[in-house]
Design a protein around this nucleic acid. Structure first.
Lengths: 351, 351
DNA sequence: GTCCAGTATTAAAACGAATTAATAGACTAG
DNA sequence: CTAGTCTATTAATTCGTTTTAATACTGGAC
């Protein structure tokens, strides 16, 4: 039953009032007038008593929670992990604590967790909009919240929400360029679900590059992932679409998948038909999720710099927090970040 | 600048004092004496004003934070994801909010985050001791904290810390039994790092079963994973150890890996030597992390029921919280949970 | 008519900090 | 010598709840 030491204890023991203690320990503006000798004494007794300020009292009074909310739409998506690592890592030195919530792609959870986060007076919110199919209007709640918000993986119309995205157009081009330069001209495509913004952006890149290279895109070899709220489903869908593709008997020497999961599904389907990757068919993915490098064959893919994206989101959020502290206007910023081609074992030259 | 609605506002508007409002809204003991009409009126005005209690004031006064701390030792370990999902899922209906921290296998982070969690007055702590090499004495901090603690994946001497573990001995036996029943007698083993409790438990199971089946364990085919603080390293190590194994030219028809990551590494090494899994060699893993089912060949493995383990940890934690609320004695409980053999494509009968 | 046991409600005191306004001494400029 | 400016410190208020002890009112039971 060791009573917890309070500020009053420090005050009493050091011989000053708790006001002085507070001012010193927070290095408040008034600390300017306090002589070093006093400061030292207070700090020493605070330490010797093992004083830890009560966060709840502090927040109640000062309105600052030193907390950042992080909302993910599906934790089990391997895409999340590294982004979260990036967020956590760059939040760590700032002594803000992230509070992570997982909406499970459900509107109800999203709303409930958002409320919980707001109840905890988060000073900023980072939303990881991976594999997101909920209506945009759910996100409208974010506007009203008056908490500075950064969205990763999706750009909102709303002018008050910042965003961090990978350059999807460029990424798709890099991937196609890679296949093309290896001599592949008959390329199958498994595009993403139509509802995903990423899909259209990537396709735009592909069309542009195809045009530039005079590469013909055979409509028979272009399939679309169905919509589903489960990110793992793209494995299953990749598998099935590839089987259909093979049944068509329209020949192709390479396959470009919407993401790594899809690529894994495709590879399985190819293997089932006795086709070896990369000997009989090259496969390229997108994202570079953690398993991709562990796969056999190791997957060639376009890497989203996920840790960097998380870090960037944090820096935007922190900047916004400072802005509201200084009562400056916060303006949303929208950043695109370049992907990187990771060449491994699943693609091979035709030549 | 919409001012936030406070309890006083509700009191004023409903015509009662804030004491009454508090009693009604919390359904405190005294609510017994308050007529339904009053309750209804207060609840209605609270709702109409959109009143949300200030969590910080509430916690300050009542000492209850409705928060559970979750400490992970490495988020990027795919083992974590599903356990976390299990924790989150079963915490959700209880309206406790989990606060997740990731120690990165660093002592300093562990301590810093533990302090942060304690500062937030967590009512219980769940520690996910995956791939854990920090000294036990770090965990000694946990004892002193007086917060009920549940550990997943490791059992402490300390009598005040509960634990949830998979039955490693049984799991290893199941795996070996599977290989044996497929006709494999020359089996290579990649054991876990010596420092991991899991390793010795699993090996115990293997020895017991080998004895029972009169199966000879060839010491030349038994290797150990080195110690490393990076859970991904077991892929790399699995790869290298398998290469060494192959160099020995001591024949084996199956390989039992310490975990799925190790198995992935082994499969890569086998493939590099032109050996096909499962045609030329069967491989079995342990854990059933998410990528295992996506692998080609899909990995046969021993599944740790990770969501169930997370859920079990939560129920122990919640029970402990209730115990301290009722001022009952909390006694640590230690639960083992049975693993499950998942037969997929990476093992095949020799017969 | 008094006393007691419920009902119904609230005033007031925490909880532990941050902050504002006030006090007071010391020094400097005029 | 006085007014004004720093320097150093603190008393008192506030943040928004929960909780305790107190205040009344009611309706029997004796």
């Amino acid at each position: 039953m060791k009573r917890v030491v309070t500020m009053r204890d420090v005050a009493k023991k050091s011989g000053f009032s708790s006001a002085t203690v507070s001012i010193v320990l927070n290095d408040a503006p008034l600390a300017r007038y306090i002589p070093d000798s006093t400061k030292k004494r207070i700090e020493r007794t605070a330490k010797s008593l093992g004083y830890r300020p009560n966060l709840f009292a502090r927040t109640l009074r000062s309105k600052r929670s030193h907390t950042v909310g992080v909302m993910v739409f599906d934790m089990t998506d391997p895409y999340c992990t590294l982004v979260l690592r990036g967020i956590e890592n760059s939040l760590y030195p700032s002594s803000y604590l992230p509070i992570l919530t997982d909406a499970h792609n459900e509107r109800e959870r999203f709303e409930r967790y958002l409320e919980m986060l707001l109840d905890r007076r988060i000073e900023a919110l980072i939303v990881l909009a991976n594999w997101l199919f909920v209506n945009i209007d759910v996100l409208a709640d974010l506007e009203s919240s008056s908490v500075p918000t950064v969205m990763i993986g999706r750009e909102l119309q709303n002018p008050s929400v910042s965003s961090v995205m990978v350059d999807n157009e460029l990424g798709a081009q890099i991937a196609l360029e890679h296949l093309y330069s290896l001599g592949h001209h008959k390329i199958a495509f498994i595009r993403g679900p139509k509802a995903l913004a990423d899909s259209t952006q990537r396709w735009k890149g592909i069309r542009a590059l195809a045009k530039a290279k005079l590469l013909e895109l055979n409509p028979q070899l272009i399939l679309n992932l169905p919509e589903s709220s489960d990110p793992m489903s793209s494995f299953e869908a990749g598998y099935q679409l590839t089987e259909e593709l093979l049944k068509q008997r329209e020949p192709f020497t390479a396959l470009m998948a919407f993401d790594d999961m899809t690529a894994f599904g495709a590879i399985r389907a190819l293997a089932n038909s006795g086709l070896h990757v990369p000997k009989d068919c090259s496969v390229i993915g997108f994202d570079d999720v953690a398993p991709s490098s562990l796969y056999t064959p190791a997957l060639t893919t376009v890497r989203q710099p996920m840790e960097a994206m998380g870090a960037l989101a944090v820096s935007i959020a922190l900047e916004a927090i400072n802005a509201v502290l200084d009562k400056r206007e916060i303006k949303a910023v929208h950043r695109q970040i370049a992907p990187e081609l990771i060449i491994r074992e699943s693609t091979r030259s035709l030549l």
